[in-house]
Design a protein around this nucleic acid. Structure first.
Lengths: 203, 203
DNA sequence: CGTCGAAGCGGACCACCGGTCCGTATCGTA
DNA sequence: TACGATACGGACCGGTGGTCCGCTTCGACG
């Protein structure tokens, strides 16, 4: 009945400090695992208790960070201009969407890695995966000639898994643009817009 | 110079006991994380030290188990009859291979999950992933009209990731046969052997 | 079969991590 | 200024992977 009580000033300040510190730490370290909660608390200049009260647990913190970073893209997808936005025809929007996801994972490897490899929780049982998947599936459904959009959507998203992206970028030294093009071609093949075989696909 | 000294009898016996016990425990429990090393040692009737001397660390144990289970399939692929074996034409062998991988992951969810989600170590920097990937890539290269076999091979394998498979099977209740067919159709689309669009693809 | 060095054993022990708890400090309001 | 509610922080806890070392067992050799 009563309105939500506004949080205290120091609480919000600390919350922001923690997010900033955590972001920096994750960006610096190789493996997300060697950033401990204590490290983050120390870097933010707060106690560990504060950390857990603000975000619940480790996963909560990481997810908050992740979704903050994701928000611009989410906006661009939900209400931005084509080819990402809703006005774009599916045949263009699907590749644009996957490209956006890929770029996001490239730019935020550490976070994505931390979230997807967060031990116990499957990356699939998260709200934002559900969102991406549903959107993608619905778009695929609008493209004539495609079947099993549900599984296809999963498979396409699987091609942008954070650890795969990290492996290709860091270990195999695949340049960013090359990777984007490979994913684009892969997507095109599935959508039937591929130029392979040298026949059809034009005019 | 000297030949490798053969391990003592009790050592090999214990090693086997540990593998058996670990296999059983992983099969029983939901999440691989709630099988601890101490649990395994206790179930096998040995001390924890034995466990670590035999396998190095947790990942080593799991990998040993995993590869033991994988061996039949590996054999079938390397020297078995078509469509899995080397005699099969690539256009048939690729789908057969992916189907085999999928079935393996379905049958050994717990192990695959334990290995792929083994925290620090990327599932991509393992020897057996390299094997699967190389084989698949080379096969794709033999199929005319396909480009970027390297990335495509990664993407196809990503569609059989253990956590995705587990999610679809356990959470979404997708029946085994349905999943196999979905993957088969997905593969067919990429290989250009798909029947979608109702045109071509026959005769 | 008895001896004896070495390989193997086991479980107490360690470092460390995520997460909790509660006495204390701070905020915001009257 | 006074005071209740809110938030703070770091000592503390349970539990995990991994180590260590005194003791046991193996098996080769005489």
């Amino acid at each position: 009945m009563v309105a939500e009580r506004r949080p205290r000033k120091d609480a919000t300040r600390n919350r922001a400090a923690v997010l900033t510190a955590a972001d920096a730490l994750f960006a610096q370290c190789q493996s997300p695992e060697d950033v401990t909660m204590a490290d983050i608390a120390a870097a933010a200049g707060v106690g560990k208790g504060t950390l857990f009260r603000a975000f619940g647990d480790r996963t909560g913190l990481i997810r908050t960070l992740y979704e903050a970073r994701l928000e611009p893209i989410r906006n661009a997808v939900e209400e931005g201009p084509p080819p990402l936005g809703p006005a774009a025809p599916p045949i263009q929007r699907v590749p644009a969407l996957l490209d956006a996801v890929l770029c996001f994972k490239l730019d935020n490897r550490h976070l994505a890695l931390a979230l997807e490899g967060a031990g116990s929780d499957s990356p699939y049982r998260t709200e934002h995966y559900e969102r991406w998947h549903t959107l993608l599936r619905d778009l695929l459904n609008l493209i004539p000639g495609l079947i099993e959009s549900d599984f296809t959507a999963h498979a396409l998203l699987a091609a942008t898994r954070a650890d795969l992206v990290e492996y290709l970028a860091d270990e195999k030294r695949v340049p960013r643009e090359e990777m984007r093009e490979q994913l684009a071609n892969f997507t095109a093949t599935i959508l039937g817009t591929s130029a392979r075989r040298g026949v059809a696909a034009e005019d």
